[in-house]
Write a protein that binds this DNA or RNA. Structure first.
Lengths: 261, 261
DNA sequence: CGGAGGCTTGAGCGCCATCAACGAGTGTGG
DNA sequence: CCACACTCGTTGATGGCGCTCAAGCCTCCG
């Protein structure tokens, strides 16, 4: 289970940086974005870093001939646009998958000042690393797993991300991607995505019906994803490493709406 | 051409951060590493961030059944280990592709202090973003290009990286990857890599002989890589954006050995 | 109620994996 | 000096996963 832990000696700093970043986001009004709208467009400097609230988005690379690759998926609580904040002409598009709301931190004035705080800089680094690990896992999955494995990996990854954010509790969640978008994410065609999903449904491993994912056989799903019942590697004790997501969540869940990294 | 430019108003800060980071690396002795040795191993906290001097390395994810995916390639001048510095148990391996030398910055003591400098934090962020863009491009290439396109993309990307670092001048370079490793990088088998390379050679597009890459028809290679003779998008003028790599290089190439970001 | 977007299913084929064998280059030890 | 092992590269034969093309269906919405 790809559960990333931060070094224990950094935990305090990270938690504090997280709080400071959250506070900065909270100062900005929630702006609504409609489904399908673009948040960041290629070749145009982006003006802000965003906190995604209550909706999904994706990052994609598009080619003139219509090919498209979705290289990351954002769920509520994610920070969007860090990787393009320093760049004058981003290569990727970021667009809304559902209607959503954003809170912004201005890239020019506010962000550099925030990065001047050591703890914020650390936390932003942490977020960037987290994203990079996600993209790395995606690249590895596409490179070395067949369609079934890729789907299993994607469904598990989303499940775990939502769960860690405490956005779901049971073995199901809503995943607002069309089969075309799933294909663009996993390097498949929508036709083949459809066939594999049917196979998973018929074997009672996962059910996807109108964007509602229901995991029916977690063990087999994990084994399809290449996690051969790995005994989850002995969790590092409290002294050696903290589960960053949960720990940070605990620190931040002061009962307000923002929370969650 | 994936030439990343930084926002003009950040150039000064980035350049200064780069110099500070360079200085910190230079304080450490060059330690040699032999080909094939591991620099970072999964599930073991890494102790340092490294500057790679005079050799190549790669980052890979490995599965118990022997599958492997190489998710990034490091060339001389690259910084290694930033993405695992904050993490107690990295998921990836980093290993030497050739004999090489490293200079280290201690993760526990020195790095947090360096990140306390605003410009260094900015520059580290920049490096992380650069890496993330590379991985994103790789994922997109594997997802949406056939074997020939992937090879073209890889060969061009390496060519441009080396060129920007001024490590090569003509249309050729040495690429110390075996065909097995190329396959692991692009999600192919070594057999198929071999066949595609032969095809490219026979059509006089690229020649690879004992790890020496020679580009013989740049235009066709670019078109295979999906860059349909795109007129390189009007370069932003000096006022709007600076070519970060070259500009930073210019600032840093004080003629010493370290240089090059 | 017509149109659009998304989902489903079938038929055929091509890219690439797999299996297998062999050659070339290099280092090692008798 | 040669036998041997080992790694890397090369090439052929065969088959399967997933793409392409095509058609029909469902659902939502104006």
């Amino acid at each position: 289970m790809p559960r990333t832990t931060c070094r224990a000696d950094l935990y305090e700093d990270l938690a504090q940086g997280k709080l400071a970043l959250r506070a900065a986001f909270r100062r900005s009004p929630e702006q609504p974005v409609e489904a399908g709208a673009r948040i960041i467009t290629p070749n145009a400097a982006s003006e802000a870093v965003y906190l995604l609230g209550g909706g999904w988005a994706y990052r994609a690379r598009e080619w003139p001939d219509g090919r498209r690759a979705i290289t990351d998926i954002y769920v509520p609580g994610d920070v969007i646009g860090l990787e393009t904040a320093l760049v004058s002409r981003p290569e990727d598009t970021v667009a809304a998958l559902t209607p959503l709301t954003l809170q912004a931190i201005d890239t020019r004035a506010a962000l550099p000042r925030l990065l001047g705080q050591r703890t914020v800089a650390l936390f932003v680094n942490w977020l960037l690393c987290e994203q990079q690990r996600r993209v790395g896992r995606l690249a590895a999955a596409i490179a070395r797993f067949d369609a079934e494995g890729r789907l299993a990996i994607m469904l598990l990854e989303l499940y775990e991300r939502l769960r860690r954010r405490e956005l779901i509790t049971a073995l199901g969640y809503t995943m607002p991607l069309t089969q075309q978008q799933i294909g663009d994410h996993l390097g498949l065609t929508l036709v083949h995505v459809n066939r594999v999903l049917r196979s998973l449904r018929e074997r009672r491993i996962v059910n996807i019906d109108r964007h509602v994912v229901t995991i029916r056989d977690m063990a087999r799903l994990q084994s399809l994803a290449g996690r051969g019942k790995a005994p989850a590697a002995p969790r590092a004790g409290a002294a050696a490493g903290l589960s960053a997501e949960t720990a940070l969540l605990a620190a931040a869940s002061a009962g307000d709406g923002l929370t969650r990294e």
